[in-house]
Amino acid sequence: MIRVEGLSKTFRGGFQALVDVDLEIRRGEIFALLGPNGAGKTTLISVICGLVNPSAGRVTVDGYDNLREYRKARALIGLVPQELTSEAFTTVWDTVSFSRGLFGKPKDPAHIERVLRSLTLWEKRDNRLLQLSGGMKRRVLIAKALAHEPQVLFLDEPTAGVDVALRREMWEVVRQLRDQGVTIILTTHYIEEAEEMADRIGVIRRGEIVLVENKHALMRKLGNKELTLHLHEPLDAVPTALTGHGLALTDEGHALVYSYNAASQEESSSISGLLADLEAVGLRVKDLHTRQSSLEDIFVSLVQERA
């Protein structure tokens, strides 16, 4: 649906925000672009949507070059920006209808009504935008992006700074759209969000796409967890009865660390085996905690892998 080839962007002033990006988005999927702040997610989206001029490379949307055939390419795209923006004095209905007309589509009140209802904005249709809460405003931006019936929807950090309830609601809306056949690209720096929503995940760091992978494969790769057992009495060595579990002794013998993959059934179930063996050996555990690799760890390990 979208093909990005050799895309680079160097801003005036010399900062290179995108480095030779290649990416293909498939029709009908939810694609999550995952990366820390400043990685270049917004820049990449902006180039595809025609808001930022590329320095090199090209983008096609459903086969249309986004610069040479910009009318056809852009007509297919809906964009929900990262920052909340709004013309404070217009009403919800007017601003959403405006978006439809701006994209060259004839008036269709029935469609606008459907969009507003699906985003639970129907009751608010006559409200001015300045009367709405932040969450409502974000929904208005989604409604505007959907007003012209796009085939591709870009959501730039749709749930940043949004409360949990609204986040769930957003996810629900995104799923419904996907079910209607809309291709969705969302950016996020929350790994949980990518995990929850996406079919495929692309990881971007310092302007480079580090990997693109099917979610399940990635989650398996990234699902490493550590269980740390804090002991009452320090040990000199891992007891022989426990060597089969691949434990590591740390904190000068005060802690045992067990690494496992939470995404794997078999490995997680082995925890109970470990706990039973601990009991048998008679080790007294003072405290225990688990830690999931953070996004930062994942980036670091990905980058090291590539180096």
């Binding site: 852009r74 007509a75 505007k144």
Partner: peptide, 8 residues
Amino acid sequence: YEILSAPM
């Protein structure tokens, strides 16, 4: 952003 990303 909306004006600039419109097919105009």
